[in-house]
Amino acid sequence: MAKILIVGEVHNGELLEATLELVTLARNVGGELSSLVIGSGVAAVAEELSKKGGGKVLLADDAFLENYTVDAYTQVICKAIDAESPDLVLIPNTSSGWDVAGKLAAKLDTGIATDVIRIEEDGGDLVFIRRMFNAKFDARLRLAGSPRIATVQPGACEAFEGTEAGSVEALDVSGLESRTKFVELRQAPAGGHDLTKAEFVISGGRGLQKPENFEQLLKPLVEALGAQMGASRPVVDAGWLPHDYQVGTSGQIVSPKLYIAIGISGAIQHLVGMKNSNYIIAINKDADAPIFEVADLGVVADLFEIVPALTEAAVAAKS
């Protein structure tokens, strides 16, 4: 039977939902479960996790851990691994997850799979399933070494909802050091283009090819339909539109009545930003684009033919 250690994540003093998703995943894999809560003044969070299925919760509570630093977190996770000797360590695939996980695997000289969406048992061994090639393919990975490490995509499974007795144990976290020094948390400037309350969003992606096409092709459509314009990250990265047009994990999370994605492939980081829209239409020339998995209605065609025709029809419908 496997022993599993979950590395919990705390944001602003609250347990991240992704931690409870790891509880579900760990229970599906089966085995003895313990968890780790790292921070300063987070005893209540550890208590909460122990009641929400986290098993034996190790509490790493120290003023030095008030703010995340990769060095200190690596040391704490190693201490927890020494204490528990797990076969499998699960970490949420968040910004701190992808900062710490590779370092940890290199330190322990062990196998790791990142952004995992499922773990299956096959022939007495675990198989780690993740997306590759920007979601064009799924991949099955096998890991050697001990403990094996997986970072898990937030949202890949449901959060565990049961309640349990659980227990909390303090982890000795003396002697922590960090070369990286925390300076501050900054909020990226919000910008004036708020899409979070929009009823109707039409977003363009890399498929639009150049900035002029946002002005000459997409904008007339957006205006004819009285919608708001959004974009995927590459469009913003290239400076074609300002950051406050970006939809996704590192942009805005939108939930309009209707979302139209044009020339957008449907990478997970984009989907997270729009999949809760009431209705989704996707226009993409690639029938296998993952966007069609979340869309209600799809058009598999060249956007340079569809968009002008749609603009024309919209103008006609209004007059």
Binding site: D109, T110, G111, I112, A113, V127, R131, M132, F133, A135, K136, F137, D138, A139, R140, L141, R142, L143, A144, G145, I280, A282, A287, D288, P290, F292, E293, A295, D296, L297, G298, V299, V300, A301, E305, I306, P308, A309, L310, E312, A313
Partner: peptide, 28 residues
């Protein structure tokens, strides 16, 4: 390697979107 990619494959399709077909103006 400690990590082996055993297999890659097109993701299993869910229900997916209803695909509409036709000329550009019919689709519009």
């Amino acid at each position: 390697p400690k990590v082996t990619v055993e297999k890659i494959y097109a993701p299993l399709k869910g229900e997916g979107a209803e695909i509409i077909e036709g000329s550009a103006s019919e689709v519009a």
